[in-house]
């Protein structure tokens, strides 16, 4: 247990140092910012997928709810930024609570069900009838609270918190019980584990992560449209990064995001005309030759992956 604590502390410190130094070393702050955002989203997917096996294709629904939560709290209710960001995260939790019956589904049914749910949230937010609340299709302008530097560090705080949450879950009895449920829900229930309550708890925690990331993202960019914060590629990126690194570990989503999002930016700047082609081929090759994720390379050698 102490070893785990030490290695976890090292990971958190390395993350903090890297992302504090990154904008000083490389002037384009958006790259490390978005990397942190995707890393936190990947950890959120990891919480759910890594410990329960539910793969949320509609994860972006929580992200968008968080972004629109901030816009409603700031523009309509005139909250100040930090409470509005936390409130935005809670918006996503409320949406997740409403959608918790989705957990009755499994496998691809759950994935597609959650995708449909996020599309519903998107169509509600962007509907012209919602113009008084969300501005409908006109998009949101939060110029009054725009502050890229403060929101950068807010994202770092959220990243560290949810990395720590994954560490906690991985090493706690709560996490063990989740893995027991994932392995065999019937036996787990017979052993006295409250299957439904635990699944809902991790589902809400995962939604809170995405909601906070969406909220800070909305704050960071300050202008957005429904189609940009409910963009399905956000879900797909978070999932691909998690699976590529390896779910159920602390390190998998971190490494997955750094490598794949790093490559994404490199290709995007160096050979923009073949962006999509190279990235697509890369994903195909990685899945074919590393189907269990990068961390499996270490596990196979008997190395303990935090």
């Amino acid at each position: 247990m102490r070893r785990n604590k030490l290695s976890n502390a090292i990971i958190l410190v390395v993350l903090a140092v890297l992302f504090i130094l990154a904008p000083l070393l490389y002037p384009n702050q958006s790259v490390p910012f978005q990397m942190m955002a995707f890393m936190t989203l990947a950890q959120g997917v990891n919480l759910l997928y890594g410990f329960t096996g539910y793969l949320p294709f509609g994860y972006v629904g929580f992200f968008g709810s968080g972004a629109y939560g901030v816009s409603i709290l700031v523009l309509l209710l005139h909250w100040s930024v930090i409470p509005a960001v936390i409130g935005g995260g809670l918006f996503a939790v409320v949406v997740a609570l409403l959608l918790s019956p989705l957990l009755r589904l499994s496998g691809a049914y759950f994935s597609i069900g959650s995708l449909a749910a996020s599309e519903i949230v998107y169509y509600v937010v962007s509907n012209p009838n919602m113009q008084n609340i969300t501005q409908g299709p006109y998009g949101v302008n939060l110029a009054g609270i725009y502050d890229p530097n403060t929101s950068y560090y807010a994202m770092l705080v959220i990243l560290l918190i949810f990395t720590a949450v994954v560490m906690y879950v991985k090493n706690s009895t709560f996490g063990m019980s989740l893995l027991a449920i994932k392995e065999d829900p019937v036996s787990a229930a017979m052993a006295g584990i409250n299957v439904v309550r635990r699944r809902v708890a991790i589902w809400l925690a995962s939604a809170f992560a995405a909601g906070l990331v969406g909220a800070v993202y909305g704050w960071y960019v300050s202008v957005f449209y429904p189609s940009s914060v409910f963009d399905l590629t956000i879900s797909i990126f978070a999932i691909v990064f998690t699976l590529f690194g390896g779910g159920g570990t602390v390190l998998g989503p971190i490494v997955g995001t750094i490598v794949l999002y790093g490559l994404y930016n490199t290709i995007g700047v160096s050979s923009p005309q073949y962006f999509q082609l190279i990235y697509g081929l890369l994903i195909v090759v990685l899945v074919m030759f590393l189907p269990q994720g990068l961390t499996s390379l270490l596990k196979r050698r008997g190395i303990n992956v935090p």
Partner: peptide, 19 residues
């Protein structure tokens, strides 16, 4: 395989669209 197929075919979809 069910979950991995999602990613693999996402990659294939990107390649087809790009080509």
């Amino acid at each position: 395989p069910e979950m991995l197929s999602l990613i693999l075919f996402f990659g294939i979809s990107q390649v087809i669209e790009a080509l």
